[in-house]
Design a protein around this nucleic acid. Structure first.
Lengths: 114, 114
DNA sequence: TCAATATCTCAAGAGAAGTTGAAATATGAA
DNA sequence: TTCATATTTCAACTTCTCTTGAGATATTGA
């Protein structure tokens, strides 16, 4: 993960429709979900979905695999992890307060407990 | 941290000049650095710098404090932490592979050891 | 081959983002 | 007040992003 890859990844996540796609695909897990189902779930037309999933794919955040006439999309969890690691380490210098938020279930953000 | 705040934050980081500003301010630490020094460091004109730092400030990633005729900018580490936590928990469902990248010094990204 | 299904690509337009240089504002010193 | 310093705001421009609808491509089955 270098700087331009990170910028691509951050820009890919910084959009409502694309964030919704990622969220849905995360729920779908490693096996992924077909394009049409994801497009429906996020309320996007086929061309709009294609535009955004292409963005996510170019950024490396999702992977595609053709299964007969469908295309299954799935999240590349390792890539998202590497993106977060880049922001935390390379850009924030591994600052303890930043790391604290992620290390153990959103400790510093006060979202939830275990 | 809600979704629109997160999108603002991600978009703020997804730009070369702004990422350079954040990096420099992270090095400057809690006490921050004056606008002119940061602008110089990242090679931006005063108006260009002002445009981008305004973006970062609106996103909540940096804070400003006037010190006589200078304005000191500093990173809001807690806010960046909350942003990363949002992506990890709320958007990636706290997936173990994503969390592994950040929990213990970029384990899964293979960047460095302790 | 023909039709149906699933998805992608293209072109056009609206709107947002980024750059530039000039002018405005705020602060402090002579 | 006048000047110098530090920073922001504005207007004009170019470029990028997003949306829409129409048409193209790929796959399967009759």
């Amino acid at each position: 993960m270098n700087e331009s890859q990170a910028i691509l990844g951050l820009a890919a996540l910084a959009q409502e429709t694309r964030l919704a796609i990622v969220r849905f695909l995360v729920k779908a897990g490693r096996k992924g979900a077909p394009a049409g189902m994801v497009a429906d779930a996020v309320g996007a037309s086929s061309s709009r979905f294609s535009f955004h999933i292409g963005h996510l794919e170019r950024a490396g955040l999702v992977k595609a695999e053709r299964r007969s006439r469908q295309i299954l999309y799935s999240v590349d969890f390792a890539h998202i992890g590497a993106l977060l690691a880049f922001v935390m380490e390379d850009c924030c210098g591994g600052d303890p307060q930043v790391r604290a938020c992620c290390g153990t279930k959103s400790a510093a953000s006060g979202l939830d407990g275990e």
